[in-house]
Structure formats: structure tokens, C-alpha cells
């Protein structure tokens, strides 16, 4: 659980956002470079200080300018996976993983994390000998093992080869399920977000982009859209529409020729998503055809 309401003056604009993460969900923070995404994450972690606002995580007030509360990052119990890994070069992989496990912070089972992230063969290695993908898996494990109540991931796959991304993304989802951990996942890649996030907020020039109300399952700028991996669930000849299963739930699109069970890829514009009355699914309004996968 996380509630954030922060204002922070930046060089050319003000970062001013309010949002919440409910329970163990993956909330994606999306937006162009320089929109203030990393600043937002640093404010939550305590590495940067809001000018005004209030941050509550797991029922603990971490920052409140009115009450004069500003908990040190060391005491926030927030795991942070950085874009650039930041593994300690003077420690082995095992040493890095154990770094955050001190003073009763070792609640998370070491072997479970090592198994989950496939770190067993890496334990004795030095960080500089790891590939980008291996390094980020270690960084995720290190953050997880410090026993956080919330995990922040700032573009964790930015320095990872495209082929290796597919190797890590499933881990992130498994984390959330295995540890019931809320995750704030910053990315500018619509693909990554489509694969893991339940919910997305979009930040542009320090503000939540309009139409990105926190309850909307998916958003994306008209320019970059949002790509979803989906499976054809059912056809409804009466309404001439096809239902697709996506990571965000069911999606109704104009009738498709593919048989149920066929994987397809859908591109969705934020402006084209609307709830359908009396159902639990969303509809893509303009008939923008989904392209079948080869």
C-alpha cells in the first residue's frame, strides 16, 4: 500500500502528482524521458526531498512536510532497483544479496529468492563479470532480500539486451505473486508495461497525463500507444465482436477471423478505450484491427 502526494520544483517544470498503489499490484509509471519519473521514485525512496506533500507506505508516514516528518531512506524499508544496477563492486554476488539483511531485515527467505531469480550459479561471481541481465537479476534479489514493504523499479531493463528482457520480465510478476509485494515499475517501454503491469499512470512534464485516472487499466499516448499480447477468447457473431484475453482483462474488438486460442498482438490508443455498460470488459472503440501474429 502506498499513497503519494508530492510537489517538487525541477529545473524547467514542477513535479506535482498524487496517486496510490493498492495492495500487491504492479503499477507502471509511464512517460517520456525527462518527465520526472526518476525524480518521483527518488522522492518515494527518500533519496530526494519533496518541497511539499505526504508519502505513506504500509501505514507508515514516511514524509509529511506539514508534520515535519522525513524518514531517512535507511529506515523506509523500500526496495529500489536502479536503472544502472549499482551492485557493490567490492562484494561478491552473495555479498551483494546479503547486504540489506541486517538488524532483523532478513525476513525474506534467502534460498527462495535465489531460486526464484535463478541466482544459484552466480553467487560466487563478482559483479563486473555479470552480463546486464544477470546484474539486474542480482539487483532485484538484493532489493527483495532487504525485506521491503514496497519495491521501486526504475527502468530496470534499460541496460539489458532486448533478448534478455524476456528473461527477466516473468520474474517481476512472480515476485509480486510470491511476496505479495506492491511494485512501482517505471518504464518508457509500452511493451514491458503491457507484459507486466496491472495499471498504468502516465507522467508528462511532471503531471499525471489527462485521461490517466488511476482506475483506468491501461493508457498510452496516442503517439506510442500500448502493445498488448493477447489470446482470442471468444467470438460473438450477434454483435460482430471478438473478445480477447489480455494481461489487463478482457478486451472487446471488432470481429476477427482468428480461431479461439490464437495469440494476437493488439495496439491500443489511450483515447480509444472505454468501459462497456453492464459487462466487466473494456472495448476498443474505433475499429482499429488487431494484427495476427505470424
Amino acid at each position: 500500500m502506498l499513497e503519494v502526494r508530492v510537489r517538487r520544483r525541477l529545473a524547467t517544470f514542477d513535479l506535482d502528482v498524487t496517486f496510490a498503489v493498492e495492495g500487491a499490484e504492479i503499477l507502471a509509471v509511464h512517460g517520456p524521458s525527462g518527465a520526472g519519473k526518476t525524480t518521483l521514485v527518488n522522492l518515494i525512496a527518500g533519496l530526494d526531498r519533496p518541497d511539499r506533500g505526504r508519502i505513506v507506505a504500509d501505514g507508515r508516514v514516511l514524509f509529511d512536510d506539514a508534520a515535519g516528518i522525513d524518514v531517512a531512506p535507511a529506515a523506509r524499508r523500500i526496495g529500489y532497483v536502479f536503472q544502472d544496477g549499482r551492485l557493490f563492486p567490492h562484494l561478491s554476488v552473495a555479498g551483494n544479496l546479503r547486504y540489506g539483511r541486517h538488524r532483523g531485515r532478513g525476513r525474506v527467505d534467502f534460498d527462495q529468492v535465489v531460486a526464484l531469480l535463478g541466482l544459484g550459479p552466480l553467487l560466487k561471481r563478482r559483479p563486473r563479470t555479470l552480463s546486464g541481465g544477470e546484474g539486474q537479476r542480482v539487483a532485484i534479489g538484493r532489493a527483495l532480500l532487504s525485506g521491503p514493504s514496497l519495491l521501486l523499479m526504475d527502468e530496470p531493463l534499460a541496460s539489458v539486451d532486448p533478448e534478455r528482457k524476456a528473461e527477466i520480465l516473468p520474474f517481476v510478476r512472480r515476485l509480486r505473486d510470491a511476496f505479495a509485494l506492491p511494485i512501482l515499475y517505471v518504464s518508457h517501454s509500452a511493451d514491458e508495461i503491457a507484459q507486466i503491469a496491472e495499471r498504468t499512470i502516465r507522467i508528462e512534464k511532471g503531471r499525471l497525463a489527462s485521461g490517466a485516472a488511476p482506475a483506468t487499466p491501461s493508457t498510452g499516448g496516442p503517439a506510442d500507444g500500448l502493445a498488448l499480447m493477447a489470446v482470442v477468447a471468444d467470438h460473438d457473431p450477434a454483435t460482430q465482436r471478438t473478445l480477447l484475453d489480455t494481461p489487463f482483462g478482457r478486451l472487446s474488438v471488432p470481429l476477427r477471423p482468428e480461431a479461439p486460442g490464437t495469440p494476437v498482438r493488439v495496439t491500443v490508443d489511450a483515447v480509444s478505450v472505454a468501459p462497456v455498460a453492464d459487462t466487466d470488459h473494456l472495448a476498443v472503440l474505433p475499429p482499429r484491427p488487431a494484427a495476427g501474429l505470424p
Binding site: 533519496l47 535507511a74 523500500i78 544502472d84 549499482r86 557493490f88 538488524r103 531485515r105 532489493a143 532487504s146
Partner: peptide, 10 residues
């Protein structure tokens, strides 16, 4: 940045 990482690790 390594020191910042250590601070988030308690």
C-alpha cells in the same frame, strides 16, 4: 550512486 543504493538497503 553506490552510497545511495546502500542507504535504500538500510
Amino acid at each position: 550512486r553506490l552510497e545511495a543504493a546502500a542507504r535504500t538497503l538500510g
